[in-house]
Design a protein around this nucleic acid. Structure first.
Length: 300
DNA sequence: AATTTGCCCAACCGCAGTACG
DNA sequence: TCGTACTGCGGTTGGGCAAAT
């Protein structure tokens, strides 16, 4: 027989006194007191014996966990300080998900607490990076579109009989232009209008570039895209856009921090690092938490 | 005011290592 | 040496709560 039981923090489902089945879920105040008193008299350890002898209808594992993560007198409560957070980052960069080892370096903090902290912060971080990744992917698609446009221009130059560019249907990257419209560029059936903003830029570029760089196969460093122009297309300020280049989502910055050993949603980190290859400082990492939630609210 | 969504965190689960008979 | 029990660890789940809609 099961019944709902309330505790100071949450209601739980547990088993009634009539049966002898093990209890699960949240601990009651009475159970806590029982455990505290038992350990005060007999000490920690031998958890299975403790579970039986104390009269608690819990597993030894459950008793141990309750004691180590909650009842132990030296456990610290409250938010992690900035120093503790930085220490966690530093230790995690060294040891990865060795939570208990990390917790040993933070007196009063449990491995469970650190693990939870890491998980929630990393999830936020992953969402942030996904946002930037999407934006960056659109940017790269846009650049590819410019390359295609330039290729067609070259083709036109070498073939006087070719149709004028304004009359041509310019192939668009992947989904046929949705990326462009997502930049805030007018998405019209005449997709060349979409590309014209880039064309004027490219034409100017080509005047300044040598023939090697203008073979249509790549965009060289000297042909770096006009940042102001691109940031407008991307729907962000130039500073925001340039800031992307200052992020390194942990792959090699932060003490050669390696995200591959993280079990959480790290795909986006690696992807972004591959695409952007930029840098982020420690303080940016910490501060991005708030920025992330703001952006998510604004953009999604 | 009601409902939904997301965050936080306590607790559980499964596995691996160790101790012991 | 082997089997079993115990312990510890990392990953995951689920409920409460507050903010957002």
């Amino acid at each position: 027989m099961r019944l709902a039981m309330s505790t100071p923090s949450k209601s739980i489902i547990c088993y009634s006194e009539e049966d002898n089945e093990l209890r699960r879920g949240s601990w009651s105040v009475e159970e806590d007191n029982l455990l505290i008193n038992y350990i005060a008299n007999h000490g920690e350890g031998r958890w299975n014996l403790l579970a039986i002898s104390s009269g608690l209808r819990r597993t030894g594992k459950s008793c141990r966990l309750r004691w180590l993560n909650y009842l132990k007198p030296d456990i610290k409560r409250g938010n992690l300080t900035s120093e503790e957070q930085l220490l966690i980052f530093e230790l995690h960069s060294k040891w990865g998900n060795r939570w208990s080892k990390i917790a040993q370096q933070l007196p009063g903090r449990t491995d469970n607490e650190i693990k939870n902290y890491w998980r929630t912060r990393i999830q936020k971080q992953a969402r942030y990076v996904k946002f930037e990744t999407q934006r960056t992917t659109r940017f790269l698609e846009f650049v590819k579109g410019l390359q295609t446009t330039r290729y067609l221009l070259k083709a036109q130059e070498s073939s006087p009989s070719a149709k004028s560019l304004q009359d041509q249907e310019i192939p668009l990257p992947s989904d046929g232009g949705s990326h462009y419209s997502s930049f805030g560029i007018g998405a019209t059936p005449k997709t060349q209008i979409t590309c014209q903003g880039g064309l004027s830029h490219l034409n100017q570029h080509e005047q300044n570039s040598d023939s090697v760089h203008n073979n249509g196969s790549s965009i060289s460093n000297s042909e770096s895209v006009n940042m102001q122009n691109m940031s407008q297309h991307l729907g962000c300020t130039t500073n925001q856009f340039q800031a992307l280049d200052n992020y390194d989502f942990g792959i090699c910055s932060y003490d050669c921090y390696n995200l591959d050993n993280n079990a959480y949603d790290m795909d986006s980190f690696n992807l972004t690092a591959t695409v952007i290859g930029c840098q982020i400082s420690e303080t940016k990492w910490l501060n991005m938490e708030s920025e992330c939630s703001t952006r998510n609210n604004d953009e999604f």
